[in-house]
Design a binder for these strands. Structure first.
Length: 482
RNA sequence: GGCCCCGUCGUCCAGCGGCCUAGGACGCCGGCCUUUCAAGCCGGUAACGCGGGUUCGAAUCCCGUCGGGGCUACCA
């Protein structure tokens, strides 16, 4: 049977990196096995769902390159793949479970439940639902329900009993039904709970493997029980290790960026994100940390996923992003960087400016880890009024040898014939010889004068890109400020 | 509290009874290269939570213990 996996985010927030990682692993498994990757939207929580979040989820998956074969937006044999469109189906299953005696109505009010829970906890008893409505006569229940009395539908968990399943990642896991209370399937307002809706969908969509976060491991027996009660085939489960923040606590907003969106906008490359996330709970090969999509697909296996939770390490991600940036084709690099430059500038770049940046691109490319660092490194070529970094100015311009170095540089560069990096270098090195200055003493003033900072791309190439007029202009105005 | 999961360098991962004097990557430290900054190269730092077993032999298997985490809703 062909593999069918799914990811079912609920649109109640921006796509979380944990969900993105789950999506990635499902996608990898589907691609590795030649199976089908499905995107479903679990929006049964109407109050908290928002179309904006759904858009973000889709955008995040597209950005990561995780294309889905069936589901929201692309369709498929199962309708819209949106739970809010399947309420009738959940009601239908609920009716069947009720008729079959697998489920029953419960008339206990939230207030009563709450009180009993507190009582049970105080006495050290299990806080779950005590099952008192289970013994109600079905006919009597139906009558009360028919008269409009508020009721939820609960699953009658078989007791005594035990649910055992073989988790792909964790091997055999067993839960005694003693510890599982008769949980709610349908709320008193008629809406299905997550457990019901998600399980019905998994059965209807013929999902073969459910790979999701370990936080759902304890809920798995409930899902299996529902599946069995509706006569469905139980899928294979794989519970992925959770992601934690640098402090070892569950990855949350307090750790800064937990939404994929933040990385998208933060100058990260999707290729790097993809590669890095693969490493969170899986490894391509003992000695290899950088690999391509195709390679990951070829080797990925759910069974090889680690059991332990992983700490999301922003520093390693950043390093990896640098690796991928340096690996980019120069034209590709500048194409990706330009939006960040324009965003920073607040305007669009002219053709001439683009050309300048294109020339500077390769020099900057190997010096940044994030695309968001590009504007800072290139802004000096785009401005007409250069501002100097204060520290840089103090450090190199207020030096005894600086005036002479600038004067000599101006003289030589004014008369130089050809304006290329090679010629510029020859001239400036001759200047160093002449004044008996070392490179640091003689070149840093030129760097600060022309770029505004002690840190810049390689000087000679930079001056070539800047052009003779602007270079001389800047050297002169810096000299005048001394 | 109960149930469940997990426990190798600071972090991610390799290891699945002898190849381990525990390997790779990030980070950190030092050096080289060098026009600055990066990159690159070389070297270094650093871990099998603890205690019992099983075995000729254990990071690898078993038990206990400690520690971390998840779940315990008419949220997903």
């Amino acid at each position: 049977m062909s593999v069918r996996v799914r990811i079912a985010p609920s649109p109640t927030g921006f796509l979380h990196v944990g969900n993105a990682r789950a999506a990635l692993f499902n996608w990898l498994y589907a691609r590795h096995t030649g199976g089908t990757f499905i995107l479903r939207i679990d929006d049964t929580d109407v109050a908290r769902s928002d179309p904006e979040y759904e858009d973000d989820v889709l955008a995040g998956l597209v950005w990561m390159g995780l294309d889905w074969d069936e589901g929201v937006g692309v369709g498929g044999p199962h309708g819209t793949y949106r739970q809010s469109d399947r309420l009738d189906r959940y009601a239908e299953v609920a009716g069947q479970l009720l008729a079959a005696g697998s489920a029953y109505h419960c008339f206990c009010t939230p207030a009563e439940l709450d009180e009993r829970r507190k009582e049970a906890q105080a006495q050290g008893r299990p806080p779950g639902y005590d099952g008192r409505c289970r013994i109600l006569d079905p006919a009597e229940s139906a009558r009360r329900k028919g008269q409009g009395e508020a009721a939820v539908l609960r699953l009658g968990v078989p007791r005594p009993g035990v649910t055992i399943f073989e988790d792909v990642i964790r091997d055999e896991v067993r839960f005694d039904h003693q510890a599982i209370d008769d949980f709610v399937l349908v709320r008193s307002d008629g809406s299905p709970t997550y457990h019901l809706a998600s399980t019905v969908d998994d059965v209807d969509y013929e999902i073969t493997h459910v790979a999701r976060g370990e936080d759902l491991l304890s809920s798995t027996p409930k899902h299996i029980l529902i599946t069995l009660a509706m006569g469905g085939t139980v899928p294979t489960y794989a519970h992925l290790p959770l992601l934690f923040g640098p402090d070892g606590k569950k990855l949350s907003k307090r750790h800064g960026d937990v939404s994929l969106k933040a990385y998208r906008e933060g100058g990260y490359l999707p290729e790097a994100m993809f590669n890095y996330m693969c490493l969170l709970g899986w490894s391509y090969e003992a000695e290899t940390t950088v690999f391509t999509r195709a390679e990951a697909i070829e080797r990925f296996d759910l069974a090889a996923v680690s059991k332990n939770a992983a700490v999301f390490d922003p520093e390693k991600l950043e390093w990896m992003n640098g690796v991928y940036i340096r690996d980019l084709d120069p034209v590709d690099f500048i194409d990706r960087a330009i939006p960040f430059v324009e965003e920073d500038l607040g305007r669009e770049l002219s053709g001439a400016e683009r050309e300048q940046l294109g020339a500077l691109g390769p020099l900057v490319q190997e010096r940044v880890k994030l695309l968001t660092e590009v504007p800072d490194m290139m802004s000096f070529v785009l401005t007409t009024s250069l501002s100097y970094d204060e520290k840089s100015w103090r450090k190199v311009m207020e030096t005894e040898t600086t005036p002479a170095a600038l004067d000599a540089a101006i003289d030589r560069l004014t008369v130089v014939g050809e304006w290329t990096a090679v010629v510029i270098e020859t001239e400036l090195r001759a200047m160093l010889d002449e004044l008996e200055l070392n490179a640091r003493q003689g070149l840093q003033p030129v760097r600060v004068a022309t770029t505004g900072s002690t840190v810049s791309p390689p000087l000679f190439e930079t001056l070539e890109v800047l052009g003779r007029d602007m270079t001389l202009d800047r050297l002169r105005s810096a000299r005048a400020k001394l």
